[in-house]
Design a protein around this nucleic acid. Sequence first.
DNA 1: AAATGACCGAATTACTCATTTAGTCAATTG
DNA 2: CAATTGACTAAATGAGTAATTCGGTCATTT
Lengths: 191, 191
Amino acid sequence: MAIDRKQLIIEAATKSFSLFGFKATTMDQVAKIANVGKGTIYTFFKNKEELFDEIISSLISEMKRAADEAMDSTLSFHEKVHRGLYQILEFRLKHQLTIKLFQEEKEMGTPAVMEVMIKLEDAILGYLKEKIVAAIDKGEIQECNPEVTAFIMLKLYVALIFDWEKRNEPLEKEEIAKLFEQYIFKGLSNR
Amino acid sequence: MAIDRKQLIIEAATKSFSLFGFKATTMDQVAKIANVGKGTIYTFFKNKEELFDEIISSLISEMKRAADEAMDSTLSFHEKVHRGLYQILEFRLKHQLTIKLFQEEKEMGTPAVMEVMIKLEDAILGYLKEKIVAAIDKGEIQECNPEVTAFIMLKLYVALIFDWEKRNEPLEKEEIAKLFEQYIFKGLSNR
DNA sequence: AAATGACCGAATTACTCATTTAGTCAATTG
DNA sequence: CAATTGACTAAATGAGTAATTCGGTCATTT
């Protein structure tokens, strides 16, 4: 079969979004990098935003997979959540595309980027919520509101990883796990 | 004695900062509202920022006073922190000036405003830290790092009061107290 | 001595117009 | 003839610039 043009376009766009962000990426540029006529892009994607969305959807899958891989079923719930969340947030910290988008969100407030960041947060919250519900069912943790609990866990992690080091020495991964246990978990655990 | 020009200037500036924010407030405007020549302002304050700083310093005192008033010594540490923090954040939510500055911080990133918001956060953290150290000394709570604990408490409260309601029904004061107890306190308390 | 407001240079804003861009579609290709 | 293309268009952008505004000063007034 001939080269997969759709894949070429996705790869080109990913590269360009990672390098220049959403706004500064032009469709002409994507077409050029992909070695494809601009019109071809529009046979696969309705518009620039849809192309962007498709890329973000894969990113979300990739994140979930990374989080799942960081856990294993022998771990306690508390260790699972710590490793999963840490993995996701580290992913955010290391991945070119997420770094660029994070920056574009706060520096320029590009609407399409804002939207996508909400989607990303929702995906993380949904993922967390799933784990929490499962843990409640198994009696690993107390009854609690899964939405609020997921929200609090995420906020705490973001605060410890991103916000704390704005004004202090960064915390080690182990310290974060310990703090998480001390503040959240000892209050949640059945034992 | 004649009218207190310094006080007039402070009142005029507070009014204008509250109404238009820091950047959009002109010294001519402050002078006009205060019924004072512009030059007079500069006999009391080195520049616009110093005038702003003095106003913020009183604001911080006012906040601390409000927090202190919301507590009484018969309360448990957990109730004290809840009431104090809630008071401070509600203050932020209701006070014209803080609302305007909060908005100016994220929408325009005015440097002078950013600086002052850091100062405000530091004041809250310092205040909290004091209460935490006292509680540790009295054996009311476990040993813990007071800086990190203050930081986590503030972040949790801000998340529950400001961030949660961006995408959900606002939480009642009682719910917030309960969540705070459930997630933070049960893990901290000696009993 | 205290207060003032006209004045100044720097910074910001309003505006304009040439350029760029997202998306279309008639022509082209294999 | 289905897939691909890039010239084309209307809309958005932003560089350049003229005009205004602003923070701060200081000679004058009270």
